[in-house]
């Protein structure tokens, strides 16, 4: 068996270190080594989007990266979107619009939409739908999710203006 590796990286602003086998995916490292279970592991082959995290601000599938590849990286998971026990405006918009039912896909959708709004603070409905296309939700039918994201963007624009 290959030797386990020691890796160090920054997760949600905190320096973390841990041991992993080369074959350990980033999502398993987050959940099992770092005890950050907010990131969900769904299909394990890059289709569902539940495991999406932000790597240097950009959404990536954490099931399609090995933890060893993330050495030195700066990651944001769903736990990093707001202080512990609190929700940010995007998360509140999801709550207000019932943009989740079982909630399994929600961490991946929140991280994906966080990146969308950082990149494009005033997205159209079409922009949101396009950005959402890589995240599968089996409950909501997506409409409430699109509404929540648009509402959050409007709220941010209003506060900025």
């Amino acid at each position: 068996m290959p030797e386990p590796r020691e890796i160090e990286l920054t997760i949600n602003g905190e320096r973390r270190a841990g041991r992993c086998e080369p074959r350990t995916t980033l999502v398993d490292f987050l959940r099992e080594t770092c005890a950050l279970t907010g990131t969900h592991v769904g299909c394990e082959h890059g289709v569902c989007g539940a495991c999406t995290v932000l790597l240097d601000g950009a959404p990536v599938r954490s099931c399609l990266m090995f933890a060893v590849q993330a050495a030195g990286a700066r990651l944001t998971t769903v736990e990093g979107l707001a202080p512990p026990g609190e929700m940010n405006d995007l998360q509140r918009a999801f709550q207000e619009h019932h943009a989740l039912q079982c909630g399994f896909c929600t961490p991946g959708i929140l991280t994906t939409m966080t990146a969308l709004l950082a990149d494009n603070p005033t997205p159209t409905r079409e922009d949101v739908r396009r950005a959402l296309s890589g995240n599968i939700c089996r409950c909501t039918g997506y409409e409430p999710i699109v509404q929540a994201v648009l509402d959050c963007a409007r709220g941010r624009a209003g506060r900025a203006g």
């Binding site: 890059g46 989007g49 790597l55 959404p59 990536v60 599938r61 994906t112």
Partner: peptide
């Protein structure tokens, strides 16, 4: 080509 998260990697 696939989706944003895939294109990022």
């Amino acid at each position: 080509v696939a989706h944003t998260a895939i294109r990022n990697r």
